[in-house]
Structures are given as C-alpha cells and as structure tokens.
C-alpha cells in the first residue's frame, strides 16, 4: 500500500521545489519571448549576414539537446569571465533554447498575416522597424499564443534537466528524497502528479485559447 503519511510529510519540500520550477519557467519564457522577438526582427529585416546568423542559431538550438546547451552555458560562460549561479546558468541555457523555438513560432505567425499588412504599413510611411514592431508583431503575437503556451509547457518539462547542475527544482528534490528515504513509488507518484497538474493546466489553456482564437 502507498504510505500517504510519508507523501504528506514530503509535500512541503516538493511544493517548494515546484515553486522553483515555476519561477525558472516564468523567467525563461519572458526572456525567450524577448530574445525571440529581437531575433525574429533580425531574421526578417536584417542584412544577409544577420539573417544567416539567426538561421544558424535556430538550427543550432533546435538540433542540439537542451542538456548539451546547459553544459555549454555551464562550462563556457565562466571561461569568458561571466560567473553565474546554477539557477541563472539554467535560466540562460533554457532561454537560448526557448528563443530558438520562439523565432520559428513568430516567423510562422507573421507569414500567415499576408503581405497586405506590411504593404499598408509602408504606404502609411512607417519605417520597416516600426512596421515590424507596431504592426506585424502585435498581430502575430495573438496567433502565436497557443503555440507559445505549448512552448511554456515544454520549458517546464525541460527545467527538470537543471537537476544535473544541482538546481533545486522539482526533479532534483524528488531524486534526493528517493535516495534519502529509499522510498521510490510514493515520491515518483507525487512528482508525476505535480508536473501533470501544472503542464496539464497549461495544455488545457492552450487548447481553450486555440478554440477561442479560431471562432
């Protein structure tokens, strides 16, 4: 039988760890969206070199496992004199990955807007930078909401990888609890349920948004 008393006893630790996971995820999403928007602007407005650099960045972030990105940031940032805590190392690594995916989401949404929007904006005398940030991006952002919510769910799951650089997020704390108490099933069940509640809520929210935006 399951030891419910034990599950209750570890609940405060698990919830504190969940809060860490949520904090990391929110920071990563904000940074990814910001960086993603800037990179999308470069990708669509920049010269050949800037475009090429963004395309290469996107291929790189999407082609290499997040775990490798974490190692890269973890080993290389101190090398160039930037010493971050494990928490911020993780946030930077996941934000780079998130930005790569966000560029593709924004670009896809902007392409569905059609040429009419940018033609009209140019006809009104807006510069290409203003056209992008005032006309195209706000409209694309609306259409990007469902995939971005999905991306947030992915970030929450990816944040579990930060356990390898000992950030005390949900998976790390659960793993430690297993090795301290030698209780496996109770911890795993609680861990799974906590992730499912957060990620499941987000996925339901994403579906709801999608249905609402379509009608």
């Amino acid at each position: 039988m399951l030891d419910f008393e034990f599950m209750l006893r570890i609940a405060p630790d698990m919830l504190a760890a969940l809060w860490m996971t949520v904090r990391i995820s929110l920071l990563v999403v904000l940074l990814s969206i910001f960086l993603g928007a800037v990179l999308t602007a470069l990708r669509m407005l920049g010269g050949r070199l800037a475009r090429g650099a963004v395309v290469a960045f996107v291929e790189f972030t999407r082609g290499v496992p997040p775990l490798v990105h974490i190692s890269i940031v973890y080993f290389l940032l101190p090398e160039i004199g930037v010493v971050l805590t494990e928490f911020w190392t993780g946030v930077v690594a996941l934000s780079l990955v998130g930005a790569g995916y966000t560029v593709e989401i924004f670009r896809g949404s902007i392409e569905t807007l059609g040429r009419g929007q940018s033609d009209a904006a140019r006809a009104l005398g807006l510069s290409s930078l203003h056209t992008f940030f005032l006309i195209l991006l706000p409209q694309a952002a609306r259409r990007s909401l469902p995939p971005l919510t999905n991306e947030l769910a992915n970030v929450i799951k990816a944040s579990s990888l930060l356990s390898v650089i000992s950030v005390n997020e949900l998976t790390k704390v659960a793993n430690d609890l297993i090795f301290v108490h030698f209780v496996v099933i109770e911890v795993l069940i609680q861990l799974t349920l906590l992730y499912m509640i957060v990620v499941g809520t987000l996925m339901a929210f994403s579906r709801w948004l999608e249905a609402r935006l379509q009608s």
Partner: peptide, 22 residues
C-alpha cells in the same frame, strides 16, 4: 498520452530506472 505529455522525459527515465528492477 496525458501522462507522457505532462511529465518531463527525465522523470520518465528515473521512473523506468527505479521501477523496472522492482
């Protein structure tokens, strides 16, 4: 499907690692 999509792959790996020997 909900369990698979709602949990990180790392958790699934740990689950297999701990539960299969049991």
């Amino acid at each position: 499907v909900f369990v698979v999509r709602g949990t990180p792959i790392l958790v699934q790996v740990y689950a297999a690692f701990f539960l299969l020997p049991m």
